[in-house]
Simulated assay, not measured.
Amino acid sequence: MKPALAMTNLASASRTQRSTLIRNTATICSLQHQLQRNRAIFNAHTSLRTFSAHSSLLNQKQKDSELPKFSFEGLGMSKNSRIFVIVVLSIFGTIETWVWCKGIYRWWYGPSEEEKKRIEASHK
């Protein structure tokens, strides 16, 4: 009887081992499938990122080449014309600053006494 018990135990052990092996294989396959899916997602994100970085660099190079340099040399101006442009812009900038200062002063303090007298005289 002892050999029969050993055979029965051996057969049940074999079945248990086979079912465990099948379960482990299914688990391993599902883990491998999940790993492959995660790699595909990661590769897709990485490739999109590298594509967008590469395309933005290409667009930046194209934009730089499309726009001319903003300098007097880039505009083809001589030394005398540069000096003329700077002087004219300085004069107009000074005039604009003076007008704004006068307007803000009048807004803050109101018209002067002379202006009030002129206004009263023009209304009479």
Rank of each mutant, 00 (worst) to 15 (best):
N59H: 07
I83Y: 03
C29K: 05
K124F: 04
Q62R: 15
I22A: 12
R106Y: 07
A26R: 03
L31C: 10
T50P: 01
H123V: 06
Q62G: 14
W98E: 07
S56N: 05
T8G: 12
L57I: 01
I28S: 12
L31I: 06
S19Y: 06
L89N: 14
S81N: 14
P3S: 06
M77N: 09
I95V: 04
R49T: 05
F84Y: 13
L58P: 04
L48A: 14
H33T: 09
A11S: 12
L58Q: 07
H54K: 02
S19H: 10
A4R: 06
M1F: 00
K124A: 10
K124D: 05
E113R: 09
A53Q: 06
S14C: 04
L5D: 06
H33A: 14
A121Y: 02
N43P: 03
T50E: 00
T16Q: 15
W98P: 00
V87L: 15
A40N: 05
A11N: 12
K117T: 09
P3G: 02
E115C: 05
N24Y: 03
K61F: 05
E113S: 11
T16Y: 00
Q36T: 06
F72D: 09
R39F: 08
E66K: 13
I83M: 08
H33I: 02
L89F: 10
E73K: 07
T16F: 01
A11H: 10
P3N: 08
R15C: 14
Q36I: 03
R106L: 09
A121I: 03
W100T: 06
K61R: 14
S14W: 01
K63D: 15
Y109W: 04
L67E: 14
N24V: 10
M7L: 14
L35F: 11
E113L: 10
L21W: 02
T27H: 13
G76W: 04
L5N: 05
N59F: 05
